[in-house]
Amino acid sequence: MSVTARVHTGALRAKGTASARSTTATRSSAPARTVTRPGTTRRTGPVHVRPQLRLVTEPVGTPPRVRRTTRTRPRRTPFVLLMVGLIAATALVLLALNTAMAVDSLRASEQRAANTELSQAVERLEQQVTTARTPAQLAAAAAAAGLVPAGTAGHLVIGPDGTSVVRGAPEPAPAPEPAPEPAPAATQQPAAQPDQQPSADAAAPGTTTEQAGG
């Protein structure tokens, strides 16, 4: 086994060197081959062998190799730089976008909260208005202001000839109950009160005529 192994390795080495030489030889030492080989096939060999070797190696194999190596090497750097730049830019833009989104969402939730607060304020105010506008509140406010419910209404109807007719049976409204001494009215109109209070009892007929016509 060991013997054959040795032989084998020797052959492999020989092959390796031979092939290495032959590949280098193809370019430069084409004549050398023609010299060595004719020893065996002198007459017929050279004519057929030469053109075959040349056709395979020179025009097809070499020129593209030369071009690739010389041209691509200097251009690789900008490409890599471009890629790195793009990646870095993407990362930065993503970061910026994320930040912007976070900021926006924060602002949105802030504004939502503000919105809710405002709508609640509106709701509260509307509630006050609604409560103050109920018939019971209005009636109380009217009574406090000294108003009385109107009786029947009179309507002045103007005919085509310009004459007017009173329709209905208008009556003077009754005097507001002199119930006064009302505490709310006194607190609301402190300045006018001293003048009005004595007349509240005495001048009831006067107020009646003033309020007639409802």
Binding site: H155, V157, R167, G168
Partner: peptide
């Protein structure tokens, strides 16, 4: 009165 109904007379 609230609805402003005018009597026909």
């Amino acid at each position: 009165a609230a609805d402003d109904v005018v009597p026909s007379g």
